[in-house]
């Protein structure tokens, strides 16, 4: 996939929709492309976070460690952004992410990510929206789980 195709792909992600193409080009050019085989770990809970991943193709599971073993709490698919919490808050990875199919990603380093957020409020808003959505989804799952348990 060439640079221009990647820019197109980034443009389709809501978070980056309103960013000027030259900045997206820089983003695409400076971010590494990483392919994971099925079952590979993007990162594990407790690792220190230094990068976020944009899923270009494929799917991934989000798992958290529980006393009863790992629990899958969410799935990611194309155009999703993964792993931004750890680089936002400087906490260790809050979950483990594993490729559930062959997975193509773009890696955005912590430094680049912050530059983007600072420069484009649009991205910050999109991230807030995304985080809120994810929190709600997790809460909903917890509610179902606790009602099952009860």
């Amino acid at each position: 996939m060439s640079l221009n195709e990647e820019v197109e792909l980034l443009r389709n992600i809501p978070m980056f929709a309103n960013i000027e193409p030259s900045k997206l080009k820089l983003l695409a050019f400076t971010s590494e492309r990483l392919t994971f085989s099925e079952g590979d770990f993007l990162f594990s809970q407790g690792d220190s976070g230094d990068a976020a991943f944009i899923i270009v193709d494929g799917e991934a599971d989000v798992m958290i460690d529980t006393p009863d073993g790992p629990l899958t709490v969410a799935h990611f698919k194309k155009n999703d952004i993964v792993g931004e919490i750890a680089i936002l808050t400087d906490v260790p990875r809050t979950a483990t992410v594993r490729a559930s199919t062959k997975l193509e990603t773009m890696v955005i380093s912590k430094e680049l990510f912050f530059r983007l957020v600072m420069e484009f409020p649009q991205i910050a808003v999109e991230i807030m929206r995304e985080l809120a959505k994810r929190l709600e989804a997790t809460n909903a799952r917890l509610r179902t789980l606790s009602s099952h348990a009860a």
Binding site: E32, R33, L34, T35, F36, S37, D40, L42
Partner: peptide, 13 residues
């Protein structure tokens, strides 16, 4: 000499 090639870019680890 053993590799006789290049380690591919973009493959995780």
């Amino acid at each position: 000499n053993i590799l006789f090639g290049k380690v591919a870019y973009g493959q995780a680890q």
